[in-house]
Amino acid sequence: AELMTLTIVKGAQGFGFTIADSPTGQRVKQILDIQGCPGLCEGDLIVEINQQNVQNLSHTEVVDILKDCPIGSETSLIIHRG
């Protein structure tokens, strides 16, 4: 298992991935745009978004944080894999 830092840019259609609740937090459910989120894999656990720890937040709260990220700006994700 490892922590990885990824930088992704939000496009007009969003980030290009969906998230779902899991017992340990929000996991990447589906990658819709592989080019839009390079390095991200289905099943990755989202630990931080732009230096904000999201592991204890609800699904709705994490979705809102992602929605609030401006289109075209870089967003830093720390994910836990494995």
Rank of each mutant, 00 (worst) to 15 (best):
D44Y: 00
G36R: 08
L77P: 00
K67Y: 03
L40V: 09
C37S: 13
E2W: 03
S76V: 10
D21Q: 14
G82Q: 15
P70R: 12
Q26T: 12
R81P: 14
E42F: 05
H80V: 03
I78M: 15
V9M: 13
I71E: 10
D64W: 10
L3I: 13
I34P: 08
G43V: 00
G82C: 06
H59C: 13
Q35P: 02
L6S: 08
L45R: 02
I79V: 06
P70V: 14
N50V: 01
T7W: 06
I31L: 13
Q26I: 06
L77F: 09
N50Q: 04
I71G: 14
T60Y: 04
H80Y: 13
V47K: 03
I78Y: 12
L32F: 01
G11Y: 05
D33R: 09
N56D: 11
G16I: 02
P38H: 02
V62E: 00
N56V: 05
I78V: 13
P23S: 10
D33T: 11
L32Y: 04
A20Q: 15
G16A: 04
Q52I: 14
Q35Y: 08
Q52K: 14
S76G: 09
L40T: 01
D21S: 09
V62L: 06
F17L: 05
D33Y: 14
C41N: 12
T75D: 07
D44W: 00
I46V: 08
E48C: 04
E2K: 07
D21T: 15
P70N: 07
E2S: 09
Q52R: 12
C69P: 01
I65F: 07
Q55E: 11
E74H: 15
I8M: 09
A12Q: 10
L3F: 13
G72T: 04
T75P: 04
P38G: 08
S22E: 06
S76E: 10
G43T: 05
I79K: 01
C41Y: 08
G11D: 13
I34R: 07
G39L: 03
A1E: 11
L66A: 01
D44H: 00
E48H: 15
D68R: 05
K29E: 15
V28L: 03
F17H: 00
S76Q: 12
N56A: 08
A1R: 15
S73H: 13
L3Y: 11
L6D: 02
R27L: 12
G36M: 14
A12N: 08
T60N: 14
I46F: 15
L66W: 01
V9N: 03
V47S: 07
C41F: 13
I71M: 12
E48A: 03
Q13Y: 07
I49P: 00
S22H: 15
A1C: 12
D44C: 00
Q35H: 15
P70Q: 07
F15P: 09
Q55P: 01
Q26K: 14
Q51L: 08
L77W: 08
E2L: 05
V63E: 11
Q55N: 14
K10I: 03
C69S: 15
G25A: 10
D33L: 04
R27N: 05
E2M: 12
F17A: 00
C37W: 02
D44E: 00
T18W: 08
E2N: 13
T60M: 13
K29D: 15
D68Y: 13
V28S: 00
L57E: 10
I19S: 01
Q35T: 15
R27A: 10
G72N: 03
E61Q: 08
G39W: 03
I78S: 13
S73R: 05
T60I: 14
V54A: 09
D21P: 10
Q52A: 10
T75C: 02
I8K: 02
S58E: 08
G43H: 13
M4R: 04
D44T: 00
E48S: 12
T7M: 07
S73V: 11
V63D: 15
E61R: 12
I79A: 03
Q55D: 06
H59M: 15
V47L: 06
F15G: 03
L6Q: 07
G36K: 05
K29Y: 00
E2F: 06
